[in-house]
Amino acid sequence: MLKYKAEREGKTYVEVDRFFPSSKTCHVCRYQVESLPLDIRNWTCEHCYTNHDRDINASINIRNEALRILSLGTSDTAKGGSVRRLGGKISYLLDATRR
């Protein structure tokens, strides 16, 4: 439903792979922690010491990945092939005009 509504409103609809490591990647310096259990809601980056709310950090990373996909015209992940799996994607709606 989101896709057709975006098209109807002249927006750009972009899907980001659901296994993109959005929660455990620092949106400031791009450092990625090895493990981040779901019960940890806040974490501090070991590299730049930025304190992150898990959900806000993930939303910033998903937005940035969607913009990267749009700018490069590719769905390859920024981190490389090891994080991609076949299957589901995360949807992200951008307030952009249709090309």
Rank of each mutant, 00 (worst) to 15 (best):
E46Q: 06
E46N: 03
Y13E: 06
E46R: 02
R18P: 01
K11T: 12
I40L: 11
N64C: 03
S91V: 10
E7A: 13
R8E: 06
A96F: 12
I69S: 10
S59W: 06
N42Y: 11
F19N: 01
C29T: 15
K89N: 13
D39C: 14
S91K: 06
K11H: 14
K5C: 14
D53L: 08
L38I: 07
R99W: 03
L38M: 06
S35L: 04
I69G: 09
D55R: 15
G10S: 15
N64W: 00
Q32N: 03
T12C: 03
K79Y: 03
N42C: 07
N57H: 03
Y92I: 03
I90L: 11
T12Y: 01
D17H: 03
C45P: 05
K79G: 02
I56L: 09
I56T: 07
T25M: 07
T50R: 15
S82H: 10
R84T: 13
N42H: 10
N51P: 01
E65S: 07
T25C: 08
C26N: 08
L72D: 02
R41A: 03
K24V: 01
T77N: 13
E9W: 14
S82C: 09
L67K: 06
C29K: 14
E7V: 08
D17K: 01
G87P: 14
A66V: 00
N64H: 04
S75H: 13
R18L: 01
T50K: 15
F20I: 00
H27L: 14
R54G: 04
L94W: 02
G73I: 02
E7G: 09
Y13L: 15
C45M: 04
V33I: 05
M1C: 11
P37M: 08
R41M: 04
V16C: 00
L94R: 01
N57C: 03
I90Q: 05
S75C: 12
N42Q: 10
H52V: 06
V14M: 05
I60M: 00
S71M: 10
I69A: 11
G81V: 09
M1N: 12
T44C: 11
S23L: 04
R30V: 09
K11M: 13
L72M: 02
D76L: 10
P37S: 09
C45G: 05
L72C: 02
I40F: 12
H27D: 14
V14L: 08
I62A: 09
T12R: 01
